[in-house]
Amino acid sequence: MEKESIVETRDLVKVYGDGAQVRALDGVNLSIARGELISVMGPSGSGKSTLLNMIGALDLPSSGQVWVNGQDLGQVRALDSFRARTVGFIFQLHNLIPTLTARENVEVPMMGQIAGRGARRRRAEELLELVGLADRMEHLPSQLSGGQRQRVAIARALANQPALVLADEPTGDLDSQSGGEVLELMQQLNQELGTTFVVVTHDPAVARQTARILNMHDGQIVHEHTVGTPFEEDLAAFRRSGLGKALVAGENPLPRLGPNEQTALQRLLASG
């Protein structure tokens, strides 16, 4: 391992429901290096948001383990303060508190972590300057545009200098221009601060802006692509994977993979 990893999962399984059980995560093994900008792709219901919730300690796995920043989440007692200190969240709907100003919204995660109103205020101002909202600090969410709100949400995610920021469809609610700006901001922050970003998206255009793309399907990571890798290498890696071997053998290990998709994938594997 060339770089220290910040997230590791081993055989992660999450089952929902008592009667008709849904395996939202079905044995996920994953390693994310510190400072990476990575995206998780997949259709809705593929388990990408569930994976994010597990990494962010919002939910506990049915089995398997998650390590974040060297800590086994199964062993962490105070998950609240773990969340406050180690991870930052960005949601699809900005989810800002409507009664609080931009600055106050950024201060929310610092309450209980950073003592002193003054210190919190200075830090929030610093962060809003960083995301380019120095002139919008005392505005309420209802007075900001969609892109601006999402910038506030990014600033809020960075409040306690987390090692890791988890973004669930951060551009899902934005037009393509503001979406692009938001993504650029994340890239810039990733470079300047070295913060690790995990971005869940179903938009290939967004995913292409990140360094590595994980493809999820039916609760499994079915494919991994590092941006810049030649297509042939990628395809060879796919042939070597379990899924690739099964497909070449004419089997379909994924119950939700339609016949057309299966045929298309098999043709792809047979090419080159």
Partner: peptide, 16 residues
């Protein structure tokens, strides 16, 4: 409810 969910995911404790 949603807002409280956000606060909790941002690290607010139950007590808070």
């Amino acid at each position: 409810t949603r807002e409280i969910g956000v606060l909790r995911s941002l690290g607010w404790s139950k007590g808070r």
